[in-house]
Design a protein around this nucleic acid. Structure first.
Lengths: 137, 137
DNA sequence: CTTGACCCTGTAGAATGGTACAGGGATTAT
DNA sequence: ATAATCCCTGTACCATTCTACAGGGTCAAG
C-alpha cells in the first residue's frame, strides 16, 4: 500500500501537479499505472526521480539532457562503451562548469574585497573573469 | 578609430547579430553610439562583455541574473554595503551550484566505474546521487 | 556603377519549460 | 450526504531567449 497520487509526489518533490503531467507528456517521465478511476499511482521512487530532475534543472541541465542522464541507466546492459563515453562527456561538461563557476566566484570575491578596501575600481573583475574559451554544448 | 559594427562584435563574441540587437532591446546591453547612417558603433570592450554574457549563460545564469552580475560593477562607488551583500549572495549561490555539480560528477564517475567493471547494476547511482535538499533560488 | 554583403526597423514565429483554466468525475472530511 | 478537495483530459496561454523574414538603406570591391 505505497502508491502515491500525483498531488502527493508533487508536494514531496516540491513541484506542481501540472509540471509532473507536463514531464509525462514530454516523455521525461514514463506513464505510471492507474487505479480504477484513472488516477495515476506513483511508486515512492518517483519522488527521488523528480527531486533529481529538479536539482539537475537548477544546475542548468535541460530536460533533454536530464533525459539523457537518466537514460544512461537503462542502456546499461546494452552498449556499455557508449554509455561510458556519454557519461564521460557529461563529466567533462560538468568539470568545465565547475571551473567557470570557480572563476566567477573568485571574481566576485575580489569585488567584495575591493569594496571593503575602498580601493579604486579601474576595471571590472567580473567581466574579465571568464575568458572566452571552449564551447559547452 | 576602433569602433566595430554589430557584425564584427557578433562574430568575435560568437553570437548572432540578431541576438545582440535582442540584448539591446531587453536592456542587457546599453545602446551604442551610431554613425551618420545609423549603424551601431561598438567599442572593443563590447566583445568582452558579450563573451562574459555567453559564458554566464552556459553556466545557467539567466539574462536577468547576468544583468545583476554586471550591474554590481556600476554600483561600485555608491552603496558599498549593498553591493557587498549582493555579491556575497551570488557567491553563496555559486558555491551551492558547485557543490551540486560535484555531487553529480561523483555520481557519474561511479557509474562509469561500474560500467567498465561490467558489473551488474541494480540501482541507478545517478538518481540517488542528489538527495532532495536545499533550494537553489 | 553595379552587385553582394552589410546595416536598419519592425514584426512574426519558434523552442523550451511551464502555468492556468474549463468542464466533469472521484474522494474525503464533517 | 454534501461541500471541499483532489483527480482527469484537453486546450490555451505565459515568459524567456532567441531566430527569421520583409522591406529598404549603405558600403566596398571589382
Amino acid at each position: 500500500m505505497k502508491a502515491l497520487t500525483i498531488g502527493k509526489v508533487a508536494k514531496q518533490a516540491g513541484l506542481g501537479v501540472e509540471t509532473i503531467r507536463f514531464y509525462e507528456r514530454t516523455g521525461l517521465l514514463k506513464e505510471p499505472p492507474r487505479n480504477d478511476s484513472g488516477y495515476r499511482q506513483y511508486p515512492p521512487e518517483a519522488v527521488v526521480k523528480l527531486c533529481f530532475i529538479k536539482k539537475a534543472k537548477q544546475l542548468g541541465f535541460s530536460l533533454k539532457e536530464i533525459e539523457e542522464l537518466i537514460a544512461l541507466r537503462h542502456k546499461q546492459d546494452a552498449t556499455c562503451g557508449d554509455i561510458k563515453a556519454q557519461a564521460e562527456e557529461k563529466i567533462k561538461n560538468i568539470e568545465e562548469r565547475i571551473r567557470d563557476l570557480a572563476k566567477m566566484k573568485a571574481a566576485l570575491l575580489k569585488l567584495t574585497r575591493r569594496c571593503s578596501d575602498n580601493g579604486p575600481v579601474y576595471e571590472c573583475p567580473i567581466l574579465t573573469a571568464l575568458e572566452p574559451s571552449g564551447e559547452v554544448p
